[in-house]
Structures are given as C-alpha cells and as structure tokens.
Amino acid sequence: MKPMDERNRKGAWALLPWAIPCTFLFSWCMVSAAGLVPRYLLPDPLHIAGTGYSYIFGTPEAGPYAGRFLNDAGASLLRVGCGFALAVAIGLPLGILSGRLWVFQRLMGTTVNALRAVPGITWLPLALVWFGIGMKTTVFLVALAAFFPIFLNAAAGARQVNPLLLQAGAMMGVRRLRGTFAILLPGAMPNLMTGLRLGLGISWAYLVLGELTGVPNGLGAVIMDARMLGRIDMIVVGIIVIAIIGRVSDQLLQSGMKFCFKSAGRMA
C-alpha cells in the first residue's frame, strides 16, 4: 500500500489520472471540428464550456439556465446529504449488529437480501404515492439505495474482525462497549469505508432518479428539463457537474474519515 501512496504524489505520476479525460476531450474537439457528428446530437466542447460558464456564473437574465448552479447544487446536496446520512445512521449500526450477533443475523438476513433483490427504481411509484414529488421522495430513494451497501459491508467487516484482537482486548480489560469503539470499528474499518463509498456513489444515482420526476430544482431536474427543451448542451453540462461533485464528495468522504479515524488512514 505504501509505495502506491508515495507514487500518487510524485511528479509526472500526478498527471496520470487526467490522461483519460484529456484524451477524451481532445478526441471530442477533433470530432466536432471535423463535423463528423451533427451538433444537435453532440455540441462542440466550446459551446458546452460556454453553457457551463453561464450556468455557474451567469445572471438569471442571460437565459433559462443561467446562474442556477448554486441553487440546484445546493438542493441536490441537501437531498443526497439527508438520504445518505439516514442510510448511515440506520445501516451502520444494524450492519455491525448483524455481523456480530447471531440473533440479528438471523433476524435481518433474509429480509435484507429479499429487499435487496428489488431494483431501487421499483420503489419510485410507491414513493411518489407516499411522499409526493420532491424532497421526501428523493431522500427516501437515496436512503433506501445507500442502505444496502453500507449494511452489507458493515456486517461483513464486523464478522471478519480478527477474533484474536477482540480476545486481546478482553484480556487487557476492555469491556464490551469500549471494545466496540476501540477494536471492532477500527478492525472493520476497511469494509466500513468500502460500504460508505459505495453508498455515497449510489446516492448520486438515486438522487437523479428522484429528481427526474418533476421537482423544480436540483441537478437531476435540470437535466430532465433540458431534455424537454432540447438543450443537449445543458444535459452534458449537468452530467459533467454531477461527475465532478460525485468525485469530490467521494474524496471528501475519504479525507474526512481519515481525519476522524486513525484506522481509516492506516489500514486502507
């Protein structure tokens, strides 16, 4: 693991992650310049850049989407944040309990796996009936989708913690509750991290799903709206914005965990 960390920061290697996006962007420029694809299917990058700029920095008079970015991103972040937090608050403790205690494993295993087999999108009609269009439906979908990876990875992590470590703790006088925080959670940390990252990733997917249903604001709503108005440039901007925010939030999650828990930084 160590050499990988070191390589991450060194000179030319720092550029490596950009190789694919840059190549892609370059080919796109070439294709557009050569006129190989009609503009109504794929606008050229400069046009997209212009739309993006006005979406983020423009004033409302400049056009239908100008300057909406903060509002949309804020609304989406709030929904993802609430849904993801809910999934963590429920999925993490339940997952750990079911990984450690046979009763919980028996109690929840079947149900969770049956529910997991239901594609998240199936819940959409029901959620619309229950919660109507907007915040609640989206949060519900996000929380539901993020719950499974978080729960399952927490359970697997808790189950796999080296029993010797728990024994060592017990003989050093660590009681159950403290042992949970001092040994069980750090010991399960790699799995917990995986679950959280997968959960956050899927949160963004279900955010867009929830927002496609006709809410007035949010990144998913903008994309859907742009489709109806035939603003393909705006769709592409929406996709790029979500990609960037998704990547940044994953990075923030990792750094945040490493900052808060030694084990997150030292065992990953």
Partner: peptide, 18 residues
C-alpha cells in the same frame, strides 16, 4: 473471564494493526 491479571502472549500476531 479474561482479565488484565492474566495476560496472554499469543502465538500469532495479535497487535492492533491500526
């Protein structure tokens, strides 16, 4: 039950890796 008055050195590595 296990307790700090009787400590064990295990054959395998039982240090906390974090």
């Amino acid at each position: 039950s296990p307790g700090p008055d009787r400590c064990v050195i295990f054959q395998e590595d039982a240090l906390f890796p974090w």
